[in-house]
Design a protein around this nucleic acid. Structure first.
Length: 452
RNA sequence: GGCGACGUGGCCGAGUGGUUAGGCAGAGGCCUGCAAAGCCUUGUACAGGGGUUCGAUUCCCCUCGUCGCCUCCA
């Protein structure tokens, strides 16, 4: 059974779905006001791997991930560009999904938008006000975390220390610095929706509670997101649900940061890298490989060195995939020992680096057996390798790409030269292909060429 | 100031109270017409100082260092 590190308890806990074979998970999605950066890429990849692994393990996965399409930052961006906020949100959402598609992240089962839930949010906020968990102030409605006994659970801090540490300039309208906005009254020119307190828009933390409870119900299995969302965003979601008398998420999972030179990559530091730029410069699978080779809760440095390493590791997998391509049509059941040790690692808080170690070990064994001509013995291992690749969402390049006629001609010419043992000519032809950016390998079937 | 995480061999990066992580790069060998790919072998690793223990990289304490959260952020 899969165990995950639960932020709420600070310990590893078994994932016990409320329905036997179905996992319900909610992953906090993006606020669409700019291009996705590496941090977005990381959480998307990490939880895509989790989702695929769960499915591989036999679960159906209901994967809900939201789009926040109304927010101060969207309004600001719209003002800067002289466009409507809707236009900004829609454009950024398209860019988001294009990037996700490119890194092989599956679309969510459902992707609720904040603007589709405003009415429900208003009803919810009304209820919180009635229950005394929220109060109306001159500029909006605020939530009172002090009504939640164990507020600070996800931050792993007491409410008093949070209050003491609050550095934010105290807003006069708030009773306490840790109170947060549920409803913001609109200023002139801002988009707004009607409410009992006046036209305005919802605060960020409310949308996720309302949507997740609507789509997944109370006490769903897994709530996930980047580590920086644990507090205050997730804490505040949970506080609202608790104040409403509901059981919220059963398990909280947070992934580590992307760093640049050992420092957190963040918008306020301005050191973020656009995910699309990374994809322009590298194999789109490389980032997934990099994430797999580190633990999801550890910080990772994404730079040309680490991505380059990941690409080299990928090349090793691609090489074996090319070798076994003639065998994939009719494979036996996967080698049970390999699968068992892979699953053992994955079940241990998604230990993907350990799982990849199993993968690479099986690669070495496959290559050894193939070298020895023991293809039949290798088949269950090949089958296991492909199964593990499916579990983590890595697509191996088995090289179906078309070669230009000119290149094919050169390769044939080289085969003739080699047949005639004209090594000088054969080497010259190889040099020519290599200079043009191709990788040349000899094989039993002659010169094999692929893109470098 | 409060709370928390981390410090592993050339680089990245797991893990464990005593037995091989893995990837990349390097060295030697096999294979190859030569290469490439592949296979085999190889490398003074666990921040520093105490303590517990038959034995600690792994547990406890201290020091140093790095980073994060408490503020929009994935």
């Amino acid at each position: 059974m899969l165990h995950l590190h639960d932020t709420a308890t600070g310990s590893s806990r078994p994932l016990q779905p409320r329905e036997p074979n179905k996992v319900s998970m909610y992953v906090c999605g993006p606020t669409v006001y700019g291009p996705p950066h590496l941090g977005h890429g990381r959480f998307s990849l990490v939880f895509d791997v989790l989702r695929r692994y769960l499915r591989w393990s036999g679960f159906e996965v209901d994967y809900v991930s939201n789009i926040t399409d109304i927010d101060d930052k969207i309004i600001q961006r719209a003002a800067e560009e002289g466009r409507s906020w809707e236009e900004i949100a829609q454009r950024c959402e398209r860019v988001w999904y294009r990037a996700m598609d490119a890194i092989g992240v599956e679309r969510p089962t459902r992707d609720p938008h904040a603007t589709d839930y405003v009415e429900q949010m208003v009803e919810f906020i009304e209820r919180l006000v009635e229950r005394g968990a929220a109060y109306v102030a001159p500029d909006g409605v605020y939530f009172r975390p002090s009504v939640v006994a164990d507020y600070g659970l996800l931050a792993r801090q007491s409410i008093d220390s949070l209050r003491a540490g609050a550095r934010v300039g105290v807003d006069e309208a708030k009773e306490s610095p840790i109170d947060f906005a549920l409803w913001k009254l609109a200023k002139p020119g801002e988009p707004s929706w009607p409410s009992p307190w006046g036209a305005g828009r919802p605060g960020w933390h409310t949308e996720c509670v309302v949507r997740s409870r609507d789509l997944l119900g109370d006490c769903f299995d897994l709530h996930a997101g980047g580590q920086d969302l644990a507090f205050p965003h997730h804490e505040n979601e949970r506080a609202q649900a608790v104040a409403d008398g509901a059981d919220f998420a059963e398990l909280w999972v947070h992934n580590g940061f992307v760093e640049v030179g050992g420092e957190k990559m963040s918008k306020s530091l301005g050191n973020f890298t656009n995910l699309l730029d990374l994809l322009d410069a590298h194999d789109p699978r490389a980032y997934r490989m990099l994430c797999l080779q580190s633990h999801y809760r550890s910080p990772i440095d994404v730079d040309s060195t680490s991505i380059g390493n990941a690409e080299a590791a990928l090349a090793r997998l691609d090489a074996v995939a090319r070798r076994v391509r003639d065998h994939v049509a009719d494979l036996p059941d996967p080698d049970p020992e390999t699968i068992a040790s892979f699953a053992e690692r994955m079940d241990d808080d998604l230990d993907t680096p350990g799982a990849m170690a199993i993968v690479f070990k099986s690669v070495t064994r496959i290559n050894s057996l193939l070298d020895a001509g023991s293809d039949l013995v290798a088949l269950p291992l090949i089958s296991a390798l492909l199964s593990m690749m499916r579990a983590v969402g890595l697509v191996l390049d088995v090289d179906g790409s078309e070669l230009p006629d000119e290149v094919v001609a050169l390769a044939r010419e080289r085969d003739e030269a080699r047949a005639a043992k004209d090594w000088t000519r054969a080497d010259a032809l190889r040099d020519e292909l290599v200079a043009a950016g191709w990788v040349v390998e000899d094989s039993a079937d002659g010169t094999r060429v692929r893109p470098g």
